Simulated scan of single mutants.
Amino acid sequence: MKNYSIYILFVTVGLLISCKKEQEKPKVIYETTAKTANSIVVDTNKVLVADLPVHMDGTNYLLYPIGDLNFAKRMNYGSSNRNNSISYTVSNYGEYEITGFLNNIKFKEIGKDTIYALTDKPVIIQSATYLKDHASKNKQQLMVYVLGDMDTNKDAKLDESDIKALYISEINGKNFTKLSTDFQELIDWKYLEISNSIFFRTIEDTNKNGEMDSNDKVIYSKINLLDKEWKVENYDPT
């Protein structure tokens, strides 16, 4: 009986692993007709809520993180909080950075009534960072975003399984601009105060196997923030 139980255990584990592999999808699925975030199926069960406003020190704007309450519940599942209370928090705020899986961010200038959205397109914002050091040196207040903006795995939804992109805007959300290239996944980015530049790395699925791996090409890019057009330049340090 003991050996039979061990056999059942191994079979169960094997089935779970097999099911997990079947459920895993490539990050990019290529089709003859390109589909972007516009092909996303609208989730009618989605409940959007706004966190209390965030103020970046030295700016004149309030930022309201907007997120999916149902997604926030799933993220909070299994936490140490066992009192069955509902958490309406959809973001976290660190030093000059908002993180989470946000559907949008809304902006309001202090002293004015108008509240407006960063974008009217489907996105999943994972981080929004205020470049405080750049602002203090150059009087230019900017936000940098890491987000998903394309349904690259063609599952008709936009989530953390899709590739990440790099965006920038002014502190008021205006001039929201994509810096990375479509279908290139952001690896990381860095602001260097000494050169007033953002450096970032992306990876391109050059072998078209749907995954970003060591066989693909890493692309190095930078922008000079003092250039009003935020022109992206490629460089090769390798």
Rank of each mutant, 00 (worst) to 15 (best):
N3G: 02
Y4W: 06
S5A: 11
I6E: 06
I6N: 04
Y7L: 14
I8T: 12
F10R: 09
V11I: 15
V11C: 12
K20V: 14
E22V: 13
P26W: 12
K27C: 09
T32H: 05
A34I: 14
T36K: 08
T36S: 12
S39W: 10
T44A: 11
N45D: 14
N45V: 07
V47H: 12
V49R: 07
V49C: 05
A50I: 02
D51F: 11
P53M: 03
H55E: 02
D57G: 06
T59E: 07
Y64G: 01
D68C: 10
N70D: 07
N70S: 06
F71N: 00
F71W: 13
K73T: 15
G78D: 06
S79N: 10
N81I: 14
N83S: 02
N84F: 15
N84Y: 15
I86F: 14
T89M: 05
T89L: 14
N92C: 08
Y93E: 02
T99Y: 13
G100K: 13
L102S: 01
N103K: 04
N103E: 15
N103L: 05
N104S: 00
F107E: 00
F107C: 01
F107M: 02
K108F: 04
E109W: 01
G111W: 13
G111Q: 08
K112D: 05
T114D: 11
I115T: 01
I115L: 03
L118W: 15
L118Q: 07
T119E: 04
D120E: 12
P122M: 09
P122W: 03
V123P: 04
A128R: 01
K132L: 15
D133Y: 14
H134D: 05
A135S: 11
K137G: 10
Q140I: 07
L142W: 13
V144A: 11
V144T: 05
V144R: 08
V144N: 04
V146W: 10
L147S: 04
D149I: 03
A156M: 11
E160G: 01
D162N: 06
D162E: 09
S169N: 12
S169Q: 08
G173Y: 00
K174F: 00
T177D: 04
T177G: 01
L179E: 02
S180T: 14
T181Y: 12
D182M: 03
F183R: 13
F183D: 02
E185F: 08
W189G: 04
E193H: 14
E193N: 14
I194T: 10
S197H: 06
F199D: 04
D205L: 13
D205C: 06
K208M: 09
E211A: 08
M212F: 15
D213E: 05
K217H: 10
I223H: 08
L226W: 09
E229S: 15
E229D: 14
E233I: 10
E233A: 10
Y235M: 00
Y235S: 00
D236P: 07
